[in-house]
């Protein structure tokens, strides 16, 4: 977990320095703001990983001498198949088409999105195919 934290924190530090140099030198706001936001994107998850890396036991994937048995156990629950990503994708498609061809396309678009969100959440909850 430490390497992961260092990569993101390093990104934040890099952006912090670049933001300070660039903003003070160029006095141009768009780039300065974008670099400042980039710095936050480094520090927020980086800080989170660093906080956890100090509190949790080293994981098997961080142990250079790990045996495969150390990884034994449940990795996670992976949905085998699901129709909801397709439904959500089609909903987003119609919603975007509403930007071009008229507001009425929001009706099928948002309906599909809401249906897919409920369906997907219910699928996760039941732990099975809905």
């Amino acid at each position: 977990m430490k390497v992961e934290a260092k990569i993101l924190l390093g990104l934040g530090v890099f952006f912090g320095v670049m933001c300070a140099v660039y903003w003070n030198w160029s006095l141009e706001n768009a780039g300065g703001v974008m670099m400042f936001a980039g710095m936050l994107l480094g520090f927020l998850p980086g800080g989170y990983y660093y906080w956890w890396s100090r509190r949790m036991a080293p994981r098997a994937e961080d142990d250079p001498n790990a045996t495969q048995a150390q990884g034994a156990g449940v990795v996670g629950a992976f949905p085998g198949t699901s129709i909801w990503p397709f439904t959500l994708g089609m909903g987003s498609f119609f919603t975007v088409l509403a930007l071009v061809f008229g507001i009425w396309l929001l009706v099928p678009g948002l309906a599909l999105i809401v249906w897919a969100l409920f369906g997907g959440v219910a699928e996760s909850r039941r732990g099975g195919k809905v």
């Binding site: 495969q68 034994a72 990795v75 996670g76 629950a77 992976f78 085998g80 099975g128």
Partner: peptide, 25 residues
């Protein structure tokens, strides 16, 4: 369907010893 996964090392079975994945085609 949801497959609850265990790490492959937990069961070092020979190949083809597993149940094949059944899904839609």
């Amino acid at each position: 369907m949801v497959d609850v996964l265990e790490h492959p090392a937990a069961y070092d079975l020979p190949e083809h010893g597993h149940e094949e994945h059944h899904g839609p085609t």
